[in-house]
Design a protein around this nucleic acid. Structure first.
Lengths: 193, 193
DNA sequence: TTGCTAAACGGAGTTATCCTCCGTATATAT
DNA sequence: ATATATACGGAGGATAACTCCGTTTAGCAA
């Protein structure tokens, strides 16, 4: 029933090429800080029609998600690696710092995170899930080790960091986020009995 | 030199009336959840021309700030009162909860807080300053009492809360914010020596 | 009262951007 | 070769922020 694939044909090469080109152009623009670039402009730079852009990415958010999906996946994949290299709490701290660095480098993600971390939009389902899974495993380990209180909600930590990153206008937000990592971790620890 | 007042004339009564009317209409709309209401529609409901709206409020943000300025001031004024009623840390906790409640009730403020708490826009200067002053005094008191570490940045706490509130799509954000208040406070305490 | 004028009004029009529609072109399969 | 599913492209519709400027009116002085 779920099998809806009917690949009567191989995907067309020009379609794939244009898609890749659009992603590259969008990523370059976002990275240069042109977060609010008009989609017409993205299409123009990629030398395709606006219609083509919208066929591949039905909305602005879809384009952003596509641009960052691969990198968000890498961020999520870092979690299990860090978990083997550090004790639970330090693994979480390292991962949260990575999260902050990542957002610092790719400012677009900040608004998109609204959907990723807390949203209900199906668009972000994939990237949101992998991030949630990553932070979940790290926090669970810290709780299992008795380092964290059992009532800590992993998503709360993610929301707080993502939230701070929204203040991208403020140049000091990154330091603020770094300090916040330590405060959050300290505040999550079980009472020293 | 700073005296630029030249009130050759009393402000016109129709001007003041229209301004008040616009504020009332906008506030009502925002409170009803119509956060994205078109400004044309605000003008229409207030039975004034769109030009009149823009004369009083040069931008959407200016309107939002005007709508909430009075309430933000009240929120800031609560800080010294709480400080006399509770010990330092509990005063801060109570104020932070108030902050969360406030944002919960007025969802518009979430996007606007980007400007208020971290932004550089002169628009939000006033409201931003009073909020910063409020949280500053509460945190300073906690530090002075030896309850908080000396390196806690008051603004960090505000940013974290305001950030979480941005995920208004998620119905659970308010609980998340409440939990976060406690985590932030626990994480700010000085080590029990 | 009356006339003057700064202050305020109002809404058509400009601009900017998102997104749709549909006729045209072409890559793939037979 | 040729058929056709797939993809292209850009004109144009829709929406909403914001501007411009001719018209109206409230306050003030004589």
């Amino acid at each position: 029933m779920t099998d809806v694939k009917k690949p009567r044909r191989r995907p067309r090469s020009d379609g794939r090429r244009n898609r890749e080109h659009l992603l590259a152009v969008a990523k370059a623009a976002f990275t240069m800080g042109e977060v609010d670039i008009a989609l017409d402009e993205v299409a123009r730079r990629a030398a395709v029609g606006i219609g083509t852009l919208y066929r591949h990415f039905p909305s602005r958010d879809a384009l952003i998600e596509a641009v960052y999906r691969a990198e968000l996946d890498r961020l999520a994949e870092a979690a299990p690696v860090l978990a083997t290299q550090h004790p639970p709490v330090e693994a979480l701290r390292a991962w949260m710092r990575l999260f902050v660095d990542y957002i610092a480098a790719k400012q677009v993600i900040a608004p998109a995170l609204n959907g990723l971390v807390g949203g209900t939009e199906a668009l972000y389902a994939h990237s949101g899930d992998v991030l949630k899974a990553a932070v979940n495993s790290l926090v669970s380990a810290a709780i299992a080790a008795g380092e964290f209180r059992a009532d800590i909600e992993p998503l709360d930590l993610l929301r707080a960091l993502a939230g701070v990153s929204n203040f991208s206008a403020d140049t000091g937000w990154e330091n603020s986020a770094k300090r916040l990592v330590d405060i959050l971790i300290a505040g999550s620890r079980s009472s020293v009995s």
